[in-house]
C-alpha cells in the first residue's frame, strides 16, 4: 500500500520482527515454563526450559493417581483436581443453560415486542453490568446463608447457589442476542403470523432456529465466564470437595504447602482445554456474528 518504499524500510521490518519475537517470547515464557515444570521431578526442582529428566509424578498427582512420596510410600493425592474440574464443568454447563433460557426470551421481547419501559429496562440492564458482583459479596454471602436456612440445597457451599448467583448477569447476553435478532428481517416472522402463527410460535419455530449460531456463542461465553469466575465462588464454596477449579487451584501455592510442580500439571491439564475452546470460539464468534439470517 505504501507507494514510496524507503531504503530504511528493510531495517524497520527487521527491527519490527525482532521486537515482536522478543515480545512473543515474553508472552510464551510463562506458558512454556509451566509445561516444563510439570514434567520436572519434585516440587522445588529448577533447571532448563527443556527438562533433562522427565518425570510424570505431577501428572499422576493431577489425575488423582497414587504418587510415590519421598519416603517410598505410595500416597493418594489430597487435592482432587479432576473433581474440581468436574464441579467447574457442572456449574458452567448449568449456568450456560440458565443464561440461554433467560436471555433468548428477554432479547426477543426487546427486539420485537412493544411495551412500556423498554428503554429504561435496556439501559438499566447495561448499567448493571458496570457494577461487578465482587462489590456485593457480603450481601451475596448473607443472602445465600439465609436461603440455606430454608433450603440447604441452595445455600452456601452448594453448586446450585453458584448457578443462581450467576443467573442474574445476563445483560451482555441479552444485548448480543438482541443485536442478532435485529439482523433477521421481521418479514419472515410476519409471514408466519399471516399463516396463523401466534407470537410465541413465530418466536419458537421461525426466529429461534435461525438464531442457533448466536445461541451457541452465548452459551460458550456464559460457560467460560462461569469456569473462570473466582470471587463469588470463593465466598460461596467452603468444603474442599465442593470447590471449583478457579477456587481450588489456589490451594497448591500456600506458603506452608508449596506444590509448584503439581500445580503446573493441574494448570496445564485444566487450562489447555479452556484456552483452546476460547481461541476457537473467538474465531467462530466473529463468523457467527457476521452470518445473518438472510441466505437464499
Amino acid at each position: 500500500m505504501a507507494i514510496v518504499i524507503d531504503k530504511s524500510q528493510r531495517w524497520r521490518v527487521l527491527a519490527a520482527h525482532l521486537a515482536l519475537i522478543l515480545l512473543c517470547a515474553a508472552v510464551l515464557f510463562p506458558l512454556l515454563m509451566v509445561v516444563s515444570i510439570s514434567l520436572r521431578p519434585g516440587n522445588f526442582a529448577t533447571g532448563r526450559l527443556i527438562p533433562e529428566h522427565i518425570s510424570l509424578e505431577h501428572w499422576r498427582f493431577a489425575l488423582g493417581l497414587p504418587v510415590r512420596a519421598a519416603d517410598g510410600r505410595m500416597v493418594t493425592p489430597d487435592l482432587p483436581v479432576l473433581l474440581w474440574l468436574w464441579n467447574s464443568v457442572k456449574v458452567a454447563a448449568l449456568s450456560g443453560c440458565t443464561a440461554l433460557l433467560l436471555s433468548t426470551t428477554a432479547a426477543y421481547a426487546f427486539a420485537r415486542l412493544r411495551f412500556t419501559g423498554k428503554r429504561v429496562a435496556l439501559t438499566g440492564l447495561m448499567l448493571l453490568q458496570m457494577f461487578p458482583s465482587v462489590l456485593a459479596l457480603v450481601a451475596i454471602h448473607a443472602i445465600f446463608t439465609r436461603i440455606g436456612n430454608a433450603f440447604p440445597a441452595f445455600g452456601v457451599d452448594s453448586h446450585l447457589s453458584l448457578v443462581l448467583a450467576y443467573s442474574g448477569g445476563i445483560a451482555l447476553h441479552v444485548w448480543t442476542i438482541k443485536g442478532f435478532y435485529e439482523t433477521i428481517p421481521v418479514e419472515i416472522e410476519e409471514a408466519a403470523k399471516v399463516d396463523g402463527a401466534t407470537p410465541w410460535q413465530a418466536f419458537r419455530m421461525v426466529l429461534l432456529p435461525m438464531a442457533v449460531p448466536i445461541l451457541m456463542v452465548v452459551f460458550l461465553l456464559a460457560f467460560i465466564g462461569a469456569i473462570i469466575e473466582y470471587p463469588v465462588a470463593s465466598v460461596l464454596l467452603r468444603h474442599q470437595d465442593h470447590l471449583t477449579l478457579a477456587v481450588g487451584s489456589k490451594m497448591f501455592l500456600y506458603e506452608q504447602k508449596y506444590l509448584w510442580g503439581d500445580f503446573a500439571a493441574a494448570a496445564v491439564l485444566s487450562g489447555l482445554p479452556i484456552t483452546v475452546v476460547f481461541v476457537l470460539a473467538q474465531k467462530w464468534m466473529i463468523a457467527g456474528l457476521t452470518a445473518g439470517g438472510i441466505k437464499g
Binding site: 433467560l102 426477543y108 429496562a121 458482583s133 450481601a139 443472602i143
Partner: peptide
C-alpha cells in the same frame, strides 16, 4: 418473555446491591 430474565437480574444483581 422478559419476566424470567428480569426477575433473575433483580433478585441476584439489584437486590444484593441494595442489601
Amino acid at each position: 418473555y422478559l419476566f424470567p430474565g428480569i426477575a433473575a437480574a433483580l433478585i441476584f444483581v439489584v437486590f444484593p446491591m441494595v442489601y
